[in-house]
């Protein structure tokens, strides 16, 4: 069963590219245009990975990340933060908020996909409780 990736990005064209890349990599995707929407989708979609833009309308990426980390039912969810380069130490703040990794915009598509795959392939990765049983590699 394909792993689920939630893409939270407010810029439509970037969202479109991310969606394409994740689908192409074989993952199931759902899109959120702002932080609020992402939070609504999280308990429903129960993604293995969230591609989280740090600057989202309504609720920021950082907020969303902290919510994920505070939610025990989402302990298996990995977070890949999309940050702005040199933008106020965004990546540090992202990691502090609990992100597992980050890429800076504009990103290399190959790099992004590799990082996403690495996070999803992590052997210690556990599935969220009640989630679809994890497929061992």
């Amino acid at each position: 069963m394909a792993k689920r990736v939630l893409i939270a990005e407010d810029e439509p064209s970037i969202l479109a590219s991310l969606e394409f890349l994740m689908r192409r990599a074989g993952y199931e995707t759902r899109n959120a245009a702002d932080g609020e929407e992402a939070l609504q989708l999280l308990p429903v979609f129960r993604p293995h990975l969230v591609l989280l833009d740090i600057m989202l309308p309504r609720r920021s990426g950082l907020d969303v990340c902290r919510e994920i980390r505070a939610d025990a039912s989402l302990s298996g969810t990995r977070v890949l933060m999309l940050t702005a380069k040199g933008g106020n130490r965004d990546h540090e703040r992202g990691l502090e908020a609990g992100a597992d990794d980050y890429v800076t915009k504009p990103f290399s598509t190959q790099d992004l996909v590799a990082r996403a795959q690495a996070l999803l392939a992590d052997p210690v990765l556990r599935l969220a409780p009640g989630a679809i049983p994890r497929q061992d590699p």
Binding site: I14, S17, F20, G87, P106, F107
Partner: peptide, 16 residues
């Protein structure tokens, strides 16, 4: 930031 947004899309789609 404003420049990065279109750049990100351009780069991503170009690579794709």
């Amino acid at each position: 930031h404003e420049l990065r947004t279109p750049l990100t899309s351009i780069r991503a789609f170009s690579e794709i």
